[in-house]
Amino acid sequence: MLTLACALPARAYTAYVTNERDNSLSVVDLDKMKTVQTLPVGQRPRGIAITPDGKELLVCASDDDTIQVIDTATLKIVGTLPSGPDPETFALGPAGKLLYVSNENDAMVTIIDVPARRAIAQVSTGVEPEGMGVSPDGRTVVNTSETTNMAHFIDAETHKLVASVLVDPRPRIAIFKHDGSQVWVSSELAGTVTVLDPTTHKIIHKISFAVQGLRNDVIQPVGIRFSKDDALAFVALGPANRVAVINTKTYEVVKYLLVGQRVWQMALTPDGKSLLTTNGLTNDISVIDVASLTVTKSIPVGRQPWGVVVSPK
């Protein structure tokens, strides 16, 4: 989750949602709770990030083999980044300067200097790199590999592979807690989340899920987000249509929230009060009230929404 560091008024956040099937970006006014604009972007848009100053959106146009840079003030595409082939997801460093992109087809992580709009390095990783996570201090990058089922720890300065940890089948997202103390990795096929220590590279805990009346194979964890205080973790369970809420101290699931169909990715508002989920088959985003842990609203967006980020106006 990328948030703005400055303290702007708490209202009137804007969410940006990539619609994989419509090749578009939905602009959602979170005050009015509705989509206020839809703009065309590249083919098959998926991963999305916003620079810490809120000025630029970065969108993976997977089938165009590029990352588009969109000015949030004008909503115009103002540039592209050399992403390498079929970019799906990426992670923006805390300073908003370096972007780490996984290229599934050539087993590489491409590091891009965002302001300069150029690639500065490529790091060889596991086969089919997928999820990317950067530590809050920007020193460590974690990349998951779908084929080898590993989480690879990369030193952000030397670009060297530091450690590789075996996790459960089909790891997707890797994300650091805000305090940097843990990395959580979701495994879509195994239906688990692995909690890792980023210093010792040891597995601290493994979390499983069980939803009443649901077969285990439809529980496919993908997106993970932490509450602002790191006390809760939210895990999107894909075709289980639910977000699991986890107590990060006990690793117990506190609640399962029914959101929409094929829930993959999430974003927290900068004030930490609301969590947004993209529901791929329902073609909407759900708004979860973090304090009460209830789903308060669903907002229609384009077809097959994939990624979401939030920025204050």
Partner: peptide, 12 residues
């Protein structure tokens, strides 16, 4: 292929 749906996936 998902031959049958589960009510649990859409009802709480």
């Amino acid at each position: 292929k998902v031959p049958r749906l589960s009510l649990g996936a859409l009802w709480d």
